[in-house]
Design a protein around this nucleic acid. Sequence first.
DNA 1: TTGCAAATGAGAATGCAGTATCAGTAGAAT
DNA 2: ATTCTACTGATACTGCATTCTCATTTGCAA
Lengths: 134, 134
Amino acid sequence: MERLTRQRIAIATVIEAARRPLSPQEICDAAQAHVAGLGVATVYRTLKAMIAEGAVRGVELPGEPPRYEPTGLGHHHHFRCDGCARVFDFDACPGGLDALAPKGFVSERHEFVLYGKCPECAARKRGVGTRARR
Amino acid sequence: MERLTRQRIAIATVIEAARRPLSPQEICDAAQAHVAGLGVATVYRTLKAMIAEGAVRGVELPGEPPRYEPTGLGHHHHFRCDGCARVFDFDACPGGLDALAPKGFVSERHEFVLYGKCPECAARKRGVGTRARR
DNA sequence: TTGCAAATGAGAATGCAGTATCAGTAGAAT
DNA sequence: ATTCTACTGATACTGCATTCTCATTTGCAA
């Protein structure tokens, strides 16, 4: 990342502005609003550089490719919406999780993911569609 | 799964006997002790059938392909060893995790994974992992 | 036994996320 | 403005986990 290009500004802006981890494809789509024609290869290249710099980190969820978010957000966990597949941050974390490891196991860190419906999808499920409930 | 073959018995036995979720490759390796030459294609085919029957379920961990374990083990979580990459079950689960979701979010389930060293690898300290992969 | 469809094993094929290639583009130092 | 060269976009390619193909084997019912 030696030169400051429109593409890199767009990508950094998108990641910073999102309040949630974004997939490379989400980043690409959003960045194209700033720079038309921006390609995925550039997104991957730039992500790699930003991770090496320590500005961005990958967020792995079970069964899907990584998403990316700015570093320095503090300890938090993620909520994945079953409706729209978007992932959101939340700060709550019950303490003492690492102490749950069985005897003999040494736990150093933990991942914790909630699954369900985000506010939008929770509302949409009830309000839209042909299945009027009675 | 209409016919009871040596291969299928071997695979079912291996999954049942393990106290932890196994990757398809681990299952294949272990089953070959029962039936020499058993191939991965058979493992995948049999897993698919066993999942359809409800006898086995997939366990997804962040950033890696699924492992498989018998159904009916009750609610539990997983510990992944950084040393040997094996995954173990443990029953402990702090209650109320789903209540940690931010306002407006509806949490229906959660995944929770501990990372660290299993007893063997903790004892081996800095030794190189000699265990089977995954 | 026999017969036959289900099951198997080996390897080719697929799907997909991510990476490399390369000719053309465009920062930025001069 | 010129020049150098890092950067870009399109696309081919890689690596992998998983699935398909097909000739052969094998449960198992008759």
